[in-house]
Nucleic acid binder design. Structure first.
Lengths: 196, 196
DNA sequence: CAGCTGACAGATTTCAATATCTGTCAGCTG
DNA sequence: CAGCTGACAGATATTGAAATCTGTCAGCTG
């Protein structure tokens, strides 16, 4: 067992947990399974995570953060004009979610369960994303393309108005014909509403 | 038993079913319960509704139609300007849903279950509502207040963009402080996007 | 002695036996 | 004879006993 030759770290436990969740699903994945995958006793896992809930929350955070990170490049491209950055950002978010949902539906369902039980982590993730949006909106206001008395509030409104294209609850509809057009229609409406 | 003195109609069965659902919830409400409430045998209920699913669907339709009907007055007020009719319509929809969700959470949860199992009825209801919105948008385009190449598509976009304030899935958030402001922010954004 | 193990108590889940419900229909009733 | 009843078969839900899991901790090990 090569696994036992390395030190047991939180990171390794999280990786093993993701694997166990992928294999067994959220309902049947146990701490004992995770320990077995690592070749250690389950007591050792509890040395790094106080409870099973804490372990699942950490996995959830990691997963959500991977999405936020993927979008931050668009926010950072301050040389590009805000309107197309906004459109790209929204399209990238939609595309990322849709690929996750459609590509591996079971794994996506697993993370739906995890996010449902970790409202705190999800709230942080939403704050993270609206924070990114706020930067783009603020850039737009400064360059005179957008109007907004309160960029943070406006960013939240943009995020909420496009919810149907990133909220996992709507995942079923992302595969239906015509979504692409519906997405464009909503984004156009929102961008028009933003313009100075 | 006064009830048995009247003829058994589909209407009376629907009323009794609503009552049974209110009392027992969606999981425990049985056809036998409905029959007992009416003072008849359950075989008689099957004379009017082929299956339990059909009965539940009919109850769901009735409930959804009551919401649509309440909004149609605003659509019909063609003497008022389209922008304020749109704002009123969206506010009335939000308010109606919020009252249902907050006023009797258990009953609302019951109808959440019913709508989840009757996608067909819900789709019709959404078509109904976007149809109403389309009329308002079209009136706005005709009077020159709004721009839209395709009022039906625009109406759908408006409906989807405001989903957070009428989709039952978000009901938990309707009670939190600040929703009122979030609602206004989204509606303002959408209305600005609509203006010519 | 820092990190890990594994036995343990209480909580949770599983499973199979039991009870209830759905949908049908032959026959009753007014 | 139109409308209703209630017994019935198969499907679904409930229940409680047995199995498994979570979280702890005294003691082992390198």
């Amino acid at each position: 067992m090569a696994a036992t030759s390395e030190i047991l770290t939180a990171e390794r436990i999280l990786e093993a947990t993701e694997e166990v969740l992928r294999r067994h699903g959220p309902a049947k994945a146990t701490v004992v399974d995770v320990a077995r995958a690592l070749g250690v006793s389950h007591g050792s896992v509890y040395r790094h995570f106080r409870t099973k809930a804490a372990l699942r929350e950490a996995v959830t955070k990691r997963w959500l953060d991977r999405t936020s990170d993927a979008l931050s490049d668009i926010v950072a491209a301050t040389d590009r004009d805000p309107e197309s950055r906004l459109r790209d950002w929204l399209a990238a978010l939609f595309e990322a979610k849709r690929r996750k949902a459609g590509g591996d539906p079971e794994l996506f369902a697993t993370y739906m369960v995890l996010t449902a039980e970790n409202g705190e982590a999800v709230a942080e993730h939403v704050d993270d994303l609206t924070g990114q949006l706020t930067e783009i909106v603020r850039a737009g206001v400064e360059s005179g393309t957008f109007t907004s008395a309160d960029p943070a509030a406006t960013a939240r409104a943009v995020f909420q108005a496009t919810g149907r294209f990133h909220d996992p609850g709507y995942a079923r509809e992302w595969e239906q014909p015509g979504v692409e057009g519906e997405f464009t229609a909503v984004v156009d409406l929102v961008v028009r509403g933003l313009r100075a």
